[in-house]
Simulated scan of single mutants.
Amino acid sequence: MEILTAKEAAKMLKISEYTLRKYAKKGRIPAHKIGNQWRFSKEELLDWFHAADLDLLAEEAEKEYRSGQTVRLWPRE
């Protein structure tokens, strides 16, 4: 099992660390908190990604961007 930091997991999923940590805190993404740091299983993230409702996640990311909570990291299609 490969364990990832928040930075590594965010890069793998191509989302901001802010969004990743928010999802982890809300229990929307598989994560484990060790002390004050989040850790992620690569295998669990890949399983979650393939099962996730990506349209819902994209809508939520768009709302965050529009409210100024995060910066767009991908071009609008």
Results as ranks from 00 to 15, higher is better:
residue 1 M to D: 01
residue 1 M to K: 02
residue 2 E to G: 05
residue 2 E to K: 02
residue 3 I to F: 03
residue 4 L to R: 03
residue 5 T to E: 08
residue 5 T to Y: 05
residue 6 A to W: 01
residue 7 K to T: 15
residue 7 K to E: 10
residue 7 K to R: 15
residue 7 K to D: 11
residue 8 E to A: 03
residue 8 E to N: 00
residue 8 E to G: 05
residue 10 A to H: 01
residue 12 M to P: 08
residue 13 L to E: 03
residue 13 L to V: 04
residue 13 L to W: 01
residue 13 L to I: 07
residue 14 K to E: 11
residue 14 K to N: 09
residue 15 I to V: 15
residue 15 I to A: 07
residue 16 S to V: 02
residue 19 T to R: 08
residue 19 T to A: 07
residue 20 L to V: 06
residue 20 L to N: 02
residue 20 L to K: 01
residue 20 L to T: 08
residue 21 R to G: 08
residue 22 K to H: 10
residue 23 Y to R: 13
residue 24 A to V: 07
residue 24 A to Q: 07
residue 25 K to V: 07
residue 25 K to M: 01
residue 26 K to N: 11
residue 26 K to Y: 09
residue 26 K to M: 09
residue 27 G to F: 04
residue 27 G to I: 02
residue 28 R to I: 09
residue 28 R to F: 13
residue 28 R to A: 10
residue 30 P to M: 01
residue 30 P to Q: 11
residue 30 P to E: 01
residue 31 A to Q: 00
residue 31 A to L: 01
residue 32 H to G: 00
residue 33 K to R: 13
residue 33 K to D: 04
residue 34 I to G: 00
residue 35 G to T: 06
residue 35 G to S: 04
residue 36 N to E: 11
residue 36 N to M: 11
residue 37 Q to S: 11
residue 37 Q to D: 02
residue 37 Q to G: 05
residue 38 W to H: 02
residue 39 R to Y: 13
residue 39 R to K: 14
residue 39 R to C: 08
residue 40 F to T: 06
residue 40 F to K: 00
residue 40 F to S: 03
residue 40 F to R: 00
residue 41 S to G: 10
residue 41 S to M: 05
residue 41 S to A: 03
residue 41 S to W: 06
residue 42 K to F: 05
residue 42 K to D: 02
residue 43 E to M: 09
residue 43 E to F: 04
residue 44 E to N: 07
residue 44 E to W: 02
residue 45 L to A: 01
residue 45 L to Y: 02
residue 45 L to V: 07
residue 45 L to F: 01
residue 46 L to R: 08
residue 46 L to T: 02
residue 46 L to E: 09
residue 46 L to D: 05
residue 46 L to V: 04
residue 46 L to C: 08
residue 48 W to P: 13
residue 48 W to D: 15
residue 49 F to Y: 15
residue 49 F to A: 15
residue 50 H to A: 12
residue 51 A to S: 13
residue 51 A to W: 10
residue 51 A to P: 06
residue 52 A to F: 07
residue 53 D to H: 03
residue 53 D to R: 06
residue 53 D to Y: 05
residue 54 L to A: 05
residue 55 D to E: 15
residue 55 D to T: 10
residue 55 D to W: 13
residue 55 D to V: 09
residue 56 L to A: 14
residue 56 L to F: 12
residue 57 L to G: 08
residue 57 L to Y: 09
residue 57 L to E: 11
residue 58 A to W: 10
residue 59 E to S: 10
residue 59 E to W: 05
residue 59 E to T: 10
residue 60 E to Y: 09
residue 61 A to I: 14
residue 61 A to E: 12
residue 62 E to K: 13
residue 63 K to H: 14
residue 63 K to A: 14
residue 63 K to W: 14
residue 64 E to N: 12
residue 64 E to K: 13
residue 66 R to Y: 15
residue 66 R to M: 14
residue 66 R to H: 12
residue 67 S to F: 14
residue 67 S to Y: 12
residue 67 S to M: 12
residue 68 G to Q: 08
residue 68 G to V: 07
residue 68 G to T: 09
residue 68 G to F: 10
residue 69 Q to S: 11
residue 70 T to V: 12
residue 70 T to M: 09
residue 71 V to Q: 11
residue 71 V to E: 12
residue 71 V to R: 11
residue 71 V to W: 15
residue 72 R to D: 03
residue 73 L to A: 13
residue 74 W to Q: 14
residue 75 P to N: 15
residue 75 P to D: 15
residue 77 E to I: 12
